[in-house]
Design a protein around this nucleic acid. Structure first.
Lengths: 225, 225
DNA sequence: CATCCAAAAATTGTCTACAATATTTCGAGT
DNA sequence: ACTCGAAATATTGTAGACAATTTTTGGATG
């Protein structure tokens, strides 16, 4: 029953998130419950829960009696998210440095290795997932559930922002900068690690093209496939 | 039908939150959908949405196929929340200082005044709502939607933590410390304001009794009334 | 007497149907 | 021809019924 047949709520959320991150779903598009229920072949009840989850991740806005729409972050909001990220992730890195284990470092290095292979293979989907996953992994290792949850939020919103505002062909984070941060942590150089993280985030932000959005596609079925 | 008769989802959330903050609902208690539906005289669907909202606020934990339970924050998590709050609220105050208007200050002073009257009247419910509201108002004035949302989360969790761990009769925040912070902001002294905020949060944290929780009441109906 | 297993009860998860609201369409009036 | 308004359509919100899972209860067995 819980998974009697259809796709799970979390899978729906992930599909939508990916569609947004890959720019197949444009900001402002309405996510109609009926359409989505037909596309994923589940009842509207489950779609509703997925939409609620997407709302709390900051990817869609739900207007009562109107429906769910993909968020359109403003330029100010975009800058805001990066400002907060610099602050929060600086704290994450500092926290990690105090108590990092060999196993933690191995996980981080393994993750960066995955990012490299995805990058060389041009596996767009994997690149998107992994580049956010690195920052999430740092938060997890920091050991604070609250920081982890906050980073989840921030990364979701960053995905949306980069999807809307990026102008280059490449995606959020390069694995090289991630590797440098891991090295600094491994060396116990907290100050350097924090600095690298801040620089890394500035670099990502600097690649954004901060103009207003204009168009938006309407073919929900093609976007979610 | 949106509000055809019954209590709204947000009202349910607020009732539960208040019940937790006033210690009528103890950590670990299961919030059974059937009971709550009967108590509030709405269908389980609405209760489910309310529980999902409470989960994202960090007040309850939902275990699949098991149900929703009032969270039991550990001592570590409690300290964690206060650490983050010191960091985030320092940023909030700094942000405010740059762009505070006369109207903002009037709102802050008005809020503190409300707190004072609630305090002199021993209006417990109001005190709880207003003491968190002050910090939320600061976040709102800061102008960052994301900071506002984060503070919402942090304040919810703080309410739970103080409900569980407080040992004194008094509640979270005294209006006097709030008033001092407003004065510092009004004087344009950001450094002082940040320091006062940090001190204020340390003061609140210092009044907690950090031992393990043990008992938990079971009379859901009496608690939610 | 404790332990384990099966049946019964309770609880959660999902779906379908219906009610209320919002949007669109189409026509009347100026 | 354009604007305003009412019927028709479409979409969201809610309730209740059913299926699956979990928990409890009761008894049989070692």
């Amino acid at each position: 029953m819980t998974e009697q047949a259809g796709i799970s709520i979390q899978q729906i959320v992930e599909k939508v998130w990916l569609s947004i991150a890959e720019r197949r779903l444009r900001p402002g598009v309405q996510l109609k419950e009926g359409q989505m229920a037909a596309i994923f072949d589940v009842s509207r009840a489950r779609i509703r829960q997925a939409l609620a989850a997407l709302e709390r991740e900051g990817l869609v806005t739900i207007i009562p009696n109107r429906g769910a729409f993909v968020c359109q972050p403003t330029v100010d909001e975009a800058r805001d998210v990066f400002t907060i990220r610099r602050s929060v992730e600086g704290r994450v890195v500092a926290r990690i440095g105090a108590s990092v284990t060999k196993a933690d470092l191995a996980r981080l290095r393994g993750h960066v290795a995955q990012e490299r292979t995805a990058n060389t293979n041009d596996a767009t989907t994997d690149i998107i997932k992994l580049s956010g996953g690195f920052h999430l992994l740092l938060a997890e290792i920091s050991g604070s559930d609250f920081l982890f949850g906050m980073m989840r939020d921030l990364i979701s919103r960053t995905s949306l922002i980069t999807a809307v505002y990026r102008n280059t062909a490449r995606f959020n984070c390069g694995p090289d900068e991630h590797a440098e941060i891991v090295d600094a942590i491994a060396a116990g150089d907290l100050k350097k690690a924090s600095g690298l993280m801040e620089h890394h985030l500035e670099h990502v932000e600097s690649e954004l093209d901060l103009r207003e959005v204009r168009d938006m596609s309407h073919d929900l079925r093609a976007a979610l496939a």
